[in-house]
Nucleic acid binder design. Sequence first.
DNA 1: GCGGTTATTATGTGCAGACATAATAGCACT
DNA 2: AGTGCTATTATGTCTGCACATAATAACCGC
Lengths: 227, 227
Amino acid sequence: MTGWEDIRAEVLRRIRARDWPPGGMIPTEEDLAVEFGVARATVNRALRDLATSGVLERRRKAGTRVAALPVRKATLDIPVIRLEIEARGQSHSFQVLKQSFMEPPVPIASRLGLGPGFKLLYLETLHLADGKPFAHEVRWLNSEILPRPLPDFHALSANEWLVAHVAYVSGDIAFSAEGASPREAAVLGVAPGAALFVTERMTWTAESPITFVRLAHGPGYRVQTLV
Amino acid sequence: MTGWEDIRAEVLRRIRARDWPPGGMIPTEEDLAVEFGVARATVNRALRDLATSGVLERRRKAGTRVAALPVRKATLDIPVIRLEIEARGQSHSFQVLKQSFMEPPVPIASRLGLGPGFKLLYLETLHLADGKPFAHEVRWLNSEILPRPLPDFHALSANEWLVAHVAYVSGDIAFSAEGASPREAAVLGVAPGAALFVTERMTWTAESPITFVRLAHGPGYRVQTLV
DNA sequence: GCGGTTATTATGTGCAGACATAATAGCACT
DNA sequence: AGTGCTATTATGTCTGCACATAATAACCGC
């Protein structure tokens, strides 16, 4: 009956009821274990979970306190774009607009840690939801990690091919808002300068960069999450 | 020497090295426990952690498999705006531009689940970083949950006052890109229609809405996270 | 007082064993 | 074949105990 989730819920209730006010200390794991009649490990699991979600702050010896200014940790699911569109009940398709092998612009090369003269595979793709423009994708790919002959990115999106075939190690994601460039405006069918939701991703293996992607989403795009 | 984090690292290495390919099954916890010479609970901790970050998919009896299309779970820290600015080494200040008591527009009222005629406290605030406009905040507050007399939101921002005094239960956050309204453009000092990064939050107690906030961030604002 | 060493303490993590639970696979019966 | 029960199995979680670790508190010599 009293699992660690029940304990977590009860602790959360006391915090929200201000039994344990923000910034205040709460009892030790051992005290709570006695009170709830469970093992300390069970209390630990509950409190650890609340700590990772930003509700509690824990330090050895110092004890556990309720976060004064809780840093809300929102967990965003970032699915493959095809699944994102299909989850809305729409059908996904895409067109490869451009494909070439060339030197990237300096800012991108430097962010990927590449010296001058290093050429990358450039791919420009338009993603469609129910046939209507959904997002504009610009991608730079390290061709050294690709097999020969090059895979056919017209058949399977570069994203999904990479997920299936290339071991990644690390990466980062950034979100921002940017005005549509003339090119983006034309491709997405919006006015130049229109506000686009942009996500940029970089991924790496242990040694070398894999890819840089910039996805520009048309108006109305929202990323949402519960807290 | 072999803690659960080492096991997690080794499992991740094998996944990324394609020893265990996407979509494939991995050995049972018990087998791995024997192989690594640790208790099953330790393996469980490692695999559970990888499952919550989207790398593994686990089901009872069915076993554990490597996610075929890993849904990257990016965890965003959403701090109080003051801390966000101070973390950049800038100083935070704010101005309350408007404060009144009135009926919210229909879309906001309906999203908060309020009937017609229900009045809310309206607060419009400009947040500054080193004295320069940083974000424009529009907030609707359920005045029924506020003490009388009303707290002075000129001294302490509404956000921080709420965090310190009101028990919340649930909420959601959404991110989008929107063109600057004339009002926003004037206040933030940007051109009308300029792309703004907008975050909208709603929070609730168990019974009633607490607040709706819309934060419009000026150009250059980015939300970033490692994966 | 002051600075540095030592003891104490709360959390972090480990182990072995146990039972719970969900989902599959196999079997029996129609 | 199809259906429904049962056995099996991998993960989920709990207990009780142990030791590790980090940070505070107490102490001591000067």
